[in-house]
């Protein structure tokens, strides 16, 4: 059990994933929600690379992890632009106060 194997990496990534979900669900600031999404993407990447190492799939898992990193960069740029626009219009980035669709 103390010897590090596949399970250890998977547990670290699942804990990271759950913390990311927690951040996305509980945070009010939109930028903090983005940080939670980055945590989730990192957890997925750890899974890809751990299975690539221990499953003997060659380098395919690492390629997919690289693609995920590229997508995360694009997502962060777009999301930040949207957050800036929201701040310009509502002068707040708290996701619970932006509820004009409600009424």
């Amino acid at each position: 059990m103390l010897h590090v194997g596949l399970n250890h990496f998977l547990i670290v990534s699942s804990l990271l994933f759950c913390l990311g979900i927690f951040g996305v669900v509980t945070r009010r600031n939109a930028v903090m929600v983005l940080m939670g999404i980055e945590l989730i993407l990192n957890a997925a990447n750890i899974n890809f690379i751990a299975f690539a190492r221990y499953g003997n799939f060659g380098l395919q898992g690492q390629i997919i992890a690289l693609f995920v990193i590229v997508l995360a960069a694009a997502e962060a740029a777009i999301a930040l632009a949207i957050v800036l626009n929201i701040y310009k219009i509502f002068s707040t980035v708290n996701v619970d106060e932006i509820d004009t669709l409600k009424d």
Binding site: A76, L80, V83
Partner: peptide, 24 residues
């Protein structure tokens, strides 16, 4: 992938997030 993680996440995405914090 580790180097890319450092360059893209620490050098790019985190800076972007901090800019987001400062601008909003």
């Amino acid at each position: 992938v580790a180097i890319v993680q450092l360059v893209v996440y620490v050098g790019g995405i985190l800076i972007l997030l901090i800019f987001g914090v400062m601008l909003t």
